[in-house]
Amino acid sequence: SGEEFIAMYTYESSEQGDLTFQQGDVILVTKKDGDWWTGTVGDKAGVFPSNYVRLKD
């Protein structure tokens, strides 16, 4: 389980282990570690910068 966040911006990365997503995607955040959080979008999982998302209303 985790908290749902909304992507405010598209995040694209070629780094292994990074979670890429489109603006407006719902991200289920499973771990918060400083500026880099872990989460899932659909069947993808990985880390992403926390300043790209906001808490879902």
Rank of each mutant, 00 (worst) to 15 (best):
E12K: 13
V41L: 11
Y11E: 04
K31R: 09
Y52P: 01
T20W: 06
I6L: 08
G24E: 04
S14D: 13
L19G: 01
Q16R: 11
A45R: 13
I27C: 02
W37L: 05
G34Q: 15
K32V: 02
N51M: 10
F5A: 11
L55Y: 02
G2C: 14
G46M: 00
K31A: 12
S50V: 04
V53P: 02
G34D: 06
A45C: 13
T40Y: 14
S13L: 00
V26C: 07
D43P: 10
L19N: 03
K44P: 01
T10L: 00
V47Q: 11
E4R: 07
T40E: 15
D25Q: 14
V41N: 14
T10K: 10
K32M: 15
D35G: 07
D57H: 07
K31M: 01
Q23S: 09
Q23V: 12
V29T: 03
D33R: 13
L55F: 06
L28V: 13
Q16K: 15
V29G: 04
E15M: 10
Q23D: 07
R54P: 03
T30G: 04
I6W: 02
K31C: 15
V53S: 03
T10H: 10
W36V: 13
G24A: 04
F21Q: 03
S50I: 05
V26D: 11
G42W: 02
E4Q: 12
E4K: 05
L55A: 13
L55R: 13
K44E: 04
T38G: 09
G42S: 08
G17M: 07
V41R: 12
L28I: 15
D18E: 13
S13F: 03
G17T: 08
N51E: 10
G39Q: 00
R54C: 10
Y11M: 09
R54Q: 13
N51P: 02
L55P: 15
S1L: 12
G46L: 02
T38D: 03
Y52I: 12
D35Q: 05
K56Q: 09
S13Q: 05
E15L: 11
L19W: 00
D57Y: 10
S13E: 05
Q23F: 04
D43T: 14
G42C: 06
K31F: 05
I27H: 03
D43N: 14
W37M: 11
R54H: 09
G46V: 01
D57V: 03
F5G: 10
G42L: 08
K56S: 07
G17N: 12
S13W: 01
Q23C: 12
D18L: 10
A7G: 04
K31S: 14
S50W: 00
K56H: 08
F21W: 01
L28F: 11
D18T: 12
T30R: 05
I6M: 06
K44F: 02
R54Y: 14
M8K: 07
G24C: 01
F48R: 02
K31G: 12
Y52E: 03
I27Y: 00
D43A: 12
N51S: 13
A7T: 01
D43V: 11
Q23H: 12
V26M: 12
K32Y: 04
I27P: 09
E3M: 10
Q22W: 05
F21D: 02
G39M: 00
I27S: 04
W37K: 03
G46W: 00
S13R: 05
A7S: 03
A45T: 14
V41K: 15
D43F: 05
Y11L: 09
P49C: 02
G17Q: 04
D33C: 15
T38E: 13
F5C: 07
G46T: 00
W36D: 06
R54N: 09
T10S: 09
E3I: 13
T30D: 07
L19Y: 00
A45G: 10
Y11I: 01
V47T: 06
S50P: 07
V26F: 05
K56D: 10
T38P: 03
F5D: 02
S1W: 04
K32H: 14
D35P: 14
T20A: 13
S14H: 13
I27G: 09
V29E: 03
D18S: 15
Y11G: 03
D57L: 11
M8P: 05
D18H: 15
T20L: 05
F5S: 08
E15G: 10
D18K: 14
W36K: 15
T10V: 04
R54W: 10
V47F: 05
E3K: 08
M8W: 04
V26G: 04
A45E: 14
D57F: 01
F5Y: 15
K44Q: 15
L19S: 01
G42P: 02
T40R: 15
G2I: 08
I6D: 05
V47C: 15
D33E: 10
P49T: 03
D18Q: 08
G46K: 00
D43M: 11
T20R: 09
E15H: 12
D33Y: 13
G42N: 07
T20F: 03
D35N: 06
Q16E: 15
V53E: 03
D33Q: 09
T40C: 12
T30V: 07
G34K: 09
G2P: 07
D18N: 10
A7V: 00
G42R: 10
V26E: 12
Y11R: 12
K56Y: 04
P49S: 03
Y52D: 04
R54V: 15
D35H: 15
I27M: 03
M8Q: 08
T38W: 11
F5E: 06
E4T: 04
Q16G: 12
K44M: 15
E3W: 05
W37H: 05
T38Q: 09
Y52W: 02
V26P: 09
V53D: 02
Q23Y: 08
G42Y: 04
W37P: 03
D18C: 14
Q23I: 09
I27V: 13
Q22L: 08
G34E: 04
D35W: 14
D43Q: 13
V53L: 06
S14K: 12
K56I: 05
I6Y: 06
S50F: 05
D43C: 10
F5H: 10
S50G: 10
G24M: 00
A7D: 02
S50M: 09
K32E: 10
A7K: 01
L28A: 12
K44D: 15
Q16L: 14
E15F: 11
D35V: 09
T38Y: 15
Y11V: 01
I6T: 13
T10A: 06
Q16M: 15
G24V: 00
V26N: 06
S14M: 11
F21M: 03
D18A: 13
Q22D: 11
I6A: 07
F48S: 04
D18G: 14
I27W: 02
T10F: 04
W37T: 01
W37Y: 12
V26I: 14
S50R: 15
Y11N: 03
S1D: 12
G42Q: 13
Q23G: 07
T20N: 14
S1T: 14
A45H: 15
W37V: 03
Y52Q: 04
G24Q: 08
G34T: 08
Q16P: 14
K56L: 08
E12V: 08
L28H: 15
T10E: 09
V41H: 15
D25P: 00
Y52N: 01
S50Q: 10
S14W: 09
V29K: 03
F5M: 08
W36Y: 15
S14G: 12
F48A: 00
K32R: 07
S1G: 13
V26Y: 06
A7E: 00
S13D: 03
Q22I: 09
G39V: 00
E3D: 05
G2A: 11
Q16I: 10
W37G: 00
D57R: 04
D43R: 10
V53I: 04
Q16C: 10
F21V: 01
K44L: 06
W37S: 04
L19K: 01
Q22V: 11
G17K: 12
